[in-house]
Nucleic acid binder design. Structure first.
Lengths: 162, 162
DNA sequence: TTTTTTGTACAGTTTAAACTGTACGTAAAA
DNA sequence: TTTTACGTACAGTTTAAACTGTACAAAAAA
């Protein structure tokens, strides 16, 4: 019986994977929770997660919900089991890309819209006032910033198509 | 004189740009500081930044240092000016991609190495013991995780080449 | 030289995030 | 039905991050 050895190994791998997962913007507990779930390779209960990570059941409940909303884990039913079961989605690359690209596209698009709205306001204002050199500087910058957002959208759109 | 109007506009744009900048992993003050610097379009002193963001000079000092280490801003000399001057680097897309890709590549590579080291340890162990079904499960997962890291490296390598 | 100015190290404080235990609503089991 | 088990809302606490004022070293100005 070398279960202790597997636990130790699992823990090591979990720690490394969690570091990468954190780069996607997940907090440390979410990252470790997902990693542990993925390594387990089977659905787990809140109590099992709580035990494994050494955190409260409440913490598991809230963090698993976050993961679920990001489509990184799925709730699963198993006949005869009363407790909620969750398992990690897969494959890793696909699920993280889907979530990450959506996150970026939504954000970049939202900010771009706001910026374009500001741009419209400035244009409308400049028709009334005489154009000032000072605000020209800002409109130039604004154009650049909007262009930046367009480039970001393009980048992620490209990544989206594998 | 419509300086107040420009200040208001600058502030609005700064807020939007900062939201995007935060996605790159910068904290809120770093993000706003960079955005303000970029919009100013000229080198600024710590006092000016402090005044503009309503934060202490100490805070500006530490945050501008972070931005500098990420190659997002540059210290600049101007004859006759005693105070330190910093200006935002450009163009936006390039400087953020450079920094972001490096961050991901370094991290992904580091974690991949650790994981491969764990993989070697397991292999060495399995030669001694008889192979157990239990650890086979883990080695499979481990392989997938390492593959995941390779895919991430590829993705960013591709993004690196514009 | 002495005085003044500037950036930042550090300590202490404030603010926000993370975390947990208790309590309760809901649903299964008895 | 009553009883038991479960997930989570909420309040209070702990922990960590963010922030600032003071003090001081370094360098410019006088």
């Amino acid at each position: 019986m070398n279960t202790w050895k597997n636990e130790e190994t699992t823990h090591k791998i979990m720690t490394e994977l969690a570091k990468t997962v954190e780069l996607f913007g997940l907090n440390p507990v979410e990252a470790r929770l997902f990693s542990y779930l993925y390594l387990s390779g089977k659905p787990l209960t809140l109590d099992e997660m709580s035990e494994a990570l050494g955190k409260s059941k409440t913490s598991m409940s809230t963090n698993i919900r976050s993961l679920s909303e990001l489509n990184l884990v799925t709730r699963v039913w198993k006949k005869g089991v009363r407790k909620d079961l969750y398992e990690a989605n897969s494959p890793l690359y696909k699920i993280f890309m889907d979530f990450y690209i959506k996150k970026w596209m939504d954000a970049a698009n939202s900010q771009k819209k706001s910026l374009e709205e500001i741009q419209r306001l400035i244009e409308r204002q400049q028709k009334k006032d005489e154009p000032s050199t000072d605000s020209d500087n800002i409109t130039d910058r604004l154009k650049e910033i909007i262009g930046f957002h367009k480039e970001l959208e393009l980048l992620f759109k490209k990544a989206e198509g594998d």
